[in-house]
Write a protein that binds this DNA or RNA. Sequence first.
DNA 1: CCAAAGTTTGACCGATCGATCAAGTTTTAT
DNA 2: ATAAAACTTGATCGATCGGTCAAACTTTGG
Lengths: 220, 220
Amino acid sequence: MDLSGKEMAPAESTAAGPRERARARIDAKILGAAEAVFAEHGFSGASMSEIARRAGIPKPNLHYYCRTKEELYRRVLRRILDLWLGTADEIRADVDPAVALAHYIAAKIDLARKRPLASRVFANEVIHGAPQIGDFLKHELQDWVDAKAKVIEGWVKEGKMRPVDPRHLFFMLWATTQTYADFAVQIAAVLGRKTLKPADYDRAAQQTTEIVLRGLGLKT
Amino acid sequence: MDLSGKEMAPAESTAAGPRERARARIDAKILGAAEAVFAEHGFSGASMSEIARRAGIPKPNLHYYCRTKEELYRRVLRRILDLWLGTADEIRADVDPAVALAHYIAAKIDLARKRPLASRVFANEVIHGAPQIGDFLKHELQDWVDAKAKVIEGWVKEGKMRPVDPRHLFFMLWATTQTYADFAVQIAAVLGRKTLKPADYDRAAQQTTEIVLRGLGLKT
DNA sequence: CCAAAGTTTGACCGATCGATCAAGTTTTAT
DNA sequence: ATAAAACTTGATCGATCGGTCAAACTTTGG
């Protein structure tokens, strides 16, 4: 048995053998292709053949790395959920609420611009009842929101902002930011564009921040 | 040729023969079942067999009324789009902006509560690139928004509200209201409920109105 | 009353899907 | 060098899908 620790190395270890690096590379290709196909067609509409084709490998080879379509889907979702929870670092009691919320809105809209496929896979999963991530929503996400809600309630008690239901505030922030990923086609159509331009995202972030902060009494 | 005009009567004519009434009844059953199945599984995931089963008719009979799955899907979508455009009657130049926007938010959240399936079918369609309603978005909806944007710009010029990009304001209103239909599962999970209660929708409407109106300088 | 039109239904078809198999090739460890 | 392990791939399977067919039944108009 090899005791050098290579077998325990994470997929993207910096000091990995050629085998591990190849594995990490093909895993990235597969997850990227799967995310794109799941975003475009949904879980049911996505086909393993198309995912394999976009990943540049034969279909049985795809099944070698992910036994079933559902397992592949879950791996794609897990990667997306980790993105989710890492976007609100600035929402802490020791940060000014206006700064923290502006930062959060900017980070979320930036994610909508740079990872729209991830947002669409997530949205599709939730719209259809969250059959795979229901437990995540009921435990991990609820705990996450509970913690952040306490921070906001603290800000309110200190008189730093107007009274607000922190949870519904998050629903509003999630909705207004992710809509620029999930509904990009509709927004582009209304704006008379083929696709959204960087200036559109900037304007979205600026105006969303403006309205929300003023709505919370954080601007005069 | 029958000239009594019965052939031109709309499906829900009040003075229709028994045949027309039966037709209207079965059409309603089919569209209702289709909306539910499309909302739950998406277009690709929905099966004509399940739609037929939920409508209480054999599958070939379903194909008798709707030749193809795509035609049925388009009929479901058309009914939803008509709902869409009828929710902003109060946004007119002669109405006070605070009243008009509060009314619009309340109407949209009410729709999210009473027709969540319709909202989910629409969301699913747009998320996957709007293959069927792309033209609607680029023409009907764009014209609709253009007209409403002029009203809002008028309010701004009259000094009734703070300057705002009317289109991005609509994106925000659509997102914050429809999220209570499309993401109801996630919101219920975060709130620690099995399903959303009427009080949740009321609170959502109240707080959304509060933040948006204050954000637009319509409340002091 | 009867023929035409409209409606209902079980049986069935070709296509596509997720998944598997078996036979290969390449890499690793000793 | 060599055997085991890891990986690759063309061929194929059973299941399910959207859609069709043909034979029945029901309603309508004259």
